[in-house]
Write a protein that binds this DNA or RNA. Structure first.
Lengths: 167, 167
DNA sequence: GCCTGATTGTTCGCTTACGAACAATATCGC
DNA sequence: GCGATATTGTTCGTAAGCGAACAATCAGGC
């Protein structure tokens, strides 16, 4: 068989040619595999777009989506241990360590040893961190609105509910 | 006002306490802001889970989702320039450079200068890369199946369609 | 008490992701 | 032909994300 990807498909194209010689997608029995319809691919793309919208709407170029989630959770819960916060926000413990290190450097979060468990570090917002959350959270709903703009309200609710079930 | 997050909420807890003193979410007029219902947060979590399922189903621990998408696209299109591939797969040009560098190092992709445009680098699969795609693509549908398992077929179609519209 | 196993947090290495700056090249208007 | 503008690909810096290894500490069983 000749599954080699080198038929004479690349005859001659003009320099800024964006058309490409498209071969049919790989045939897998009855269903064809198209990357653009795979859930993982779509989630990656949608997440990229959502992050971009977050950055442009939130106003502060130094705050990332993950940092924002962490700060909001700390605001709600007051004081939690580092791993606990990671679980609440969906971060690996190595990731959590990095995110918290950066927030502590910027004086948005403070840490102290847990008096009841020497392994743990308790985290909380500083006064500055608290002020920042209060200020940024106003933009939160705008991020969601803008990200979901292509859908009508009914579809927006559907999407959120379906996503919550596979997350 | 006392918006400071330091009421006596942290009285005394047992050491391995996972219950936390939950404050009500921040009130923003009529709607409350809950991180767990924000589209960006859900997309991040769902994407994490999908990536984990990809890694466990694809069989090859050295192939990432992004690399897989790139390889499949190269298989379909034969030969494309680097930036072109990036656009097809949804990668920044800096990201594309990194991904391609690693695939070239592993001898899965080869590159040559575009004879018609000295700025461009044309990429294609090597024979080894082609064989790898043929082998891995079998697992592709399994990844999707597993990721969408919590939903029934109707909901699965809905989710894919909605995601495609906000991606 | 002591030993085993679990949890906590750190560190290392690697990948994706992206903004910004940059040099080389191509294109378009005139 | 020439100059302004755009595209291509590289490099640098920074962040999220995660597996793996590690030391310190805790909890449970006996």
């Amino acid at each position: 068989m000749d599954t080699q990807a080198d038929r004479a498909t690349t005859a001659h194209r003009s320099a800024r040619d964006e058309r490409r010689v498209v071969r049919p997608p790989i045939d897998l029995g009855e269903q064809r595999y198209r990357v653009e319809r795979q859930i993982g691919y779509l989630l990656r793309r949608a997440h990229q777009r959502a992050s971009a919208i977050f950055q442009e709407q939130i106003g502060d170029p130094n705050i990332t989506p993950t940092q924002f989630s962490s700060l909001v959770k700390l605001h709600e819960d007051g004081e939690v241990s580092q791993n606990q916060l990671g679980r609440l926000v969906g971060m690996d413990k190595a990731t959590t360590q990095g995110v918290m290190r950066r927030l502590k450097t910027r004086n948005l979060v403070s840490a102290r040893a847990d008096p009841g468990d020497a392994r743990r570090t308790l985290l909380r917002l500083t006064a500055e961190g608290d002020r920042l959350v209060q200020r940024l959270i106003i933009a939160g709903p705008r991020v969601t609105t803008e990200t979901l703009k292509p859908l009508n309200p009914d579809e927006q609710r559907q999407l959120v509910n379906l996503l919550a079930r596979i997350a």
